[in-house]
Design a protein around this nucleic acid. Sequence first.
DNA 1: TTTGCGTACGATCATTTGATCGATCAATGA
DNA 2: TCATTGATCGATCAAATGATCGTACGCAAA
Lengths: 316, 316
Amino acid sequence: MDKFEVKLDQAARAAWMSYVGGITQDEIASQLGVSRPGVQRLLALARQEGLIKVHIDHPIAACMTLASAIRERFGLDYCDVVPAEASAPEGAAYYLAVAGAERVARLVERSDPLTLSLGTGRSVRATVESLSRVERPQHRFVSLVGNVARDGSSNRYDGVMVLADKTGGQRFLLPSPVVASSVEEKASLQQQPLFLAITQVALEAEAAFIGVGRIDRQATLFQDHFISEDELDELLGRHAVGELLGWPMTADGEVIECSITRRVTSLPLEMFRAQPIVALAGGVAKGPAILAALRGGWLKGLVTDQLAARHIIEHA
Amino acid sequence: MDKFEVKLDQAARAAWMSYVGGITQDEIASQLGVSRPGVQRLLALARQEGLIKVHIDHPIAACMTLASAIRERFGLDYCDVVPAEASAPEGAAYYLAVAGAERVARLVERSDPLTLSLGTGRSVRATVESLSRVERPQHRFVSLVGNVARDGSSNRYDGVMVLADKTGGQRFLLPSPVVASSVEEKASLQQQPLFLAITQVALEAEAAFIGVGRIDRQATLFQDHFISEDELDELLGRHAVGELLGWPMTADGEVIECSITRRVTSLPLEMFRAQPIVALAGGVAKGPAILAALRGGWLKGLVTDQLAARHIIEHA
DNA sequence: TTTGCGTACGATCATTTGATCGATCAATGA
DNA sequence: TCATTGATCGATCAAATGATCGTACGCAAA
C-alpha cells in the first residue's frame, strides 16, 4: 500500500466522519490523531478525488441538474427548469408560469424605472397572469410582436396589457399583424411614427421575455392564419424548426431568408443581441425550437420544463 | 401545493446549489431572492427532512458504517473496522494489526508513565509487532495471561516481551499456564509473591489489549493442550462460544462456572470492569466470540475486520 | 556529509456557516 | 376589535471551515 493510498484512506475516513457522522473537524482531528488543519486538508483531498457523492432526494434535484447543464452548455445567465412529473396536479405549464413570474417579478418589483419588452405566446401570457399586483407607474412595457390578429382582433396571447394593468405602468403596443400580407404593407407599417417610437422604446429595454414558437401544423403562425399552408410547407422545406417573435429559424438557429420573413413586422432579432432575451417555453414538442434558439445564441435566459430540458441536453 | 411543499421545494433547491453546485450561502441567497440566514434555514430544513444523501465512494466507508453501528449498539469508546476485501493483498490480519498498533501507539508514545496490560493471541502479537520503536523506559507492561505453555515453553503469542523490547519499558509476566492442571496447582500459584505483585500492577493498568478466543477444535486452549478433548466437549455442552483471557463464556457473555474455569489462572474478568478492555480480533469465525464479549459488556473498545463486524451487526 | 528542493504541517487570518435574540407579522380566539 | 400566541425574519455574535504563509522535515543528488 503506497503513501497515496494511505493518505486517501485517511481522507475517506475523515470524509465519512464529517459528512456521514456529522462531527466537526476538531473532533475528527482528535479521533484521527492529526491537527484540525490536517483534517481540513484531508477533506479537501476527498472532495478533489471525488470520494464524496451527494444526492438530493427530491424531484427538484433532477431539474436543477438539467438547468445547470443547459446554463453551462449555452453560456446563459440563468436557466430555470420546472418539474414535469405526473405528480404535479396543475401541470408543468402552471409551474412554468410561476417560475417565469418569479423572474419577471425580480425586475418589476424594484423601484427604479424599468423598460421591459414582451413577446407573445401562451407561456408569456400565463407568466404575466401569475404575477402579483404591484404599483409601479414608472415602468414601461413594450410589445415586440404586433398585437393584431389577421382578422383585426387583438392578439389573444398578448401580455403587455395584463402586465401594464397589474402595475399601472405605461404600455406600448405594435398595432400590426406579426406577418404583413405583403412586403409593401410591412414597409408602410414600419414608416409610421408610432411604429418608430415603439421601436425606440424597445431598444431601451433592459430585458425581453418571449415565447418560442414551433413550425408545424400546430404552430401559432399557422393556426392564427398569419401564414398559409403553402407557406408552412415552404418553411418546412427550408428546414425551419422554430420561430422567435415570428422569425423562423433552422436547427442551427439561423434566421431563414424567404418571402415570408421579408413580411415579418417584428423588430429584427439582430437588434436585440445586446439585450438579455429570456425564453419562456416548455414541453417536449418545443424542444427542437428552444434548442435552435439556444444554438443561434439568441437567448440569455431560459425558463422551461423538464421534458424540454431533457430534449435539449440529449440533442445538444 | 401547500406551504410546506413550497418550502421544501425551496429547501431542495438551496441544498442542490450548496452541495452539488458548491456555491456559498450568500450566492444562493441572491439567486433565490432570500437573505443569507434564510438560506441557512433552508439548508437546515433540507438536512432535517433527510433530503441530502451522502455516499463516500471508498471501501473504508462501509467499514466506518459498521464501526459506528457497533460502537453505538454496545456503548463502546471506539470501534475500528478494517477492510477485509480480496483487493487487500496483505490480508485483513495485517490491517487489523496496523489498526491495533495505531491504538496502542497513542498510549505508548506519550511521555507520562503508563501501565498497560496485554492478553495473548495472534492478533495481540501481530499488533505489537506492527508498532514502531519508541524509547519509553518509564512505561510498564503486564501480561494478563500466563506466558507458559503446557510443556513449559514460553507462550508463542505473548506480546509483552516484544512491546517491552520496543520501548525499553518494564515487563511483568505471569509465570504460569493459562489453565492449571488442578485447582490445587492454581491455588498454589496464586499465593506466590510474584503472582500477587503482578496482579497489583495489572490492577493499575490504564487499559488492556486482549485477544478473543474461540471454543471449537481450532481453539488455542485446545490446540495448545490447555484443555483436553473431553473438556472441550464439556465447554461446548455448556454452550460456550468464546473466551477472554481463558475465561469461557456463553453467547450472552456470561462466564461459565465449571471444573475448567476453576483452574483458569488468569485474573478474573470482574477485576477489570473499571478498566477499558480493548479486543483485537477479526475473521468471521471469531464473530460469535466477539459478540459474546460485547454482550457481556466486557469491552470498551474493539479493533476488528469487516467480516467479523458484519456478523456482529447481523446477529446483534 | 551537506545542500537544495519539494512537501507537509501548524499558526494565523479571512470567510462562511450555525445559532440566538428581538422585532414583526399573521392567525386565532375572546 | 383587541389581545395572545406562534411563526418568520434580519441583525448579530459565535463557531467552524477555508486558505495563506512561514517553518521544518524528508528525500535525493552532489
